[in-house]
Design a protein around this nucleic acid. Structure first.
Length: 205
DNA sequence: CGAATGATCGGCT
DNA sequence: GCCGATCATTCGA
């Protein structure tokens, strides 16, 4: 089997966060936790961009202990607890000091599906295995204990690979982000990217 | 120190 | 379609 190399720093800092959100579709999110590898193809993302984006935790560059991760250089992982239950996984982009991140909302199971099913407590494969930011993290074993890790380091337990999976531009749907009605006019921005007709995308607004 | 608030999910009606 | 779970984080007193 061909050995795939994890994405390097340059991927995360060369382009704007919106471009990177689109480019991440078709890339492969891999975790190697407790000696067990599992992976999924990214099929849905959302961009969050300080300081102008009201939906971003770092709106107006608000700097707190939690948001400090978002200001790290591209390639780090920003993971936080949502609704007291779900660990949401984000990729930090842009150079240090700029809080731009991409929320990975859904993946298509690819590797070690058996382990994913076990982590989710499911008996058979169905979209709800990984279709949604909370359940996706759960399936891959991602938790906030990995917040702030540098995914470009060779020994990082979570990373993203380019496995040359081609996503046609026509197969990408842009639409408003989900669950951020409080963000007023920013809630209308088409900053959600997903692959058309893929059953493993999270449910619509 | 207390209270409010979610970038969600799954179960129930 | 609606609603409650559940807790880290944030902000104000």
């Amino acid at each position: 089997m061909k050995k795939h190399k994890r994405l390097e720093r340059s991927f995360y800092i060369r382009e704007d966060v919106l471009t990177i959100s689109r480019q991440l579709l078709g890339k492969v999110l891999v975790s190697n936790i407790d000696g067990q590898r599992s992976a999924g193809i990214i099929v849905e993302t959302e961009a969050y961009r300080a300081p102008d984006d009201k939906a971003c935790h770092a709106h107006l560059n608000r700097f707190t202990k939690r948001t400090s991760t978002m200001f790290m250089t591209g390639g780090h992982a920003y993971i936080y607890l949502c609704y007291g239950i779900h660990h949401l996984f984000n990729v930090v982009t842009a150079p240090e000091g700029i809080a731009h991140v991409v929320l990975i909302r859904a993946v298509e199971p690819k590797e070690n599906i058996k382990l994913m099913l076990k982590r989710r407590g499911l008996g058979q494969v169905k979209p709800q295995l990984t279709a949604g930011p909370g359940v996706m993290s759960r399936a891959l074993g991602i938790s906030k204990s990995f917040n702030g890790i540098d995914m470009t380091k060779e020994d990082a337990p979570i990373w993203i690979e380019d496995q040359q999976i081609d996503i046609n531009e026509n197969a990408i749907i842009r639409s408003p982000r989900v669950g951020i009605d409080y963000a007023e006019e920013c809630a209308l921005w088409d900053w959600r990217f997903r692959i058309k007709n893929n059953p493993y995308t999270s449910r619509a607004k």
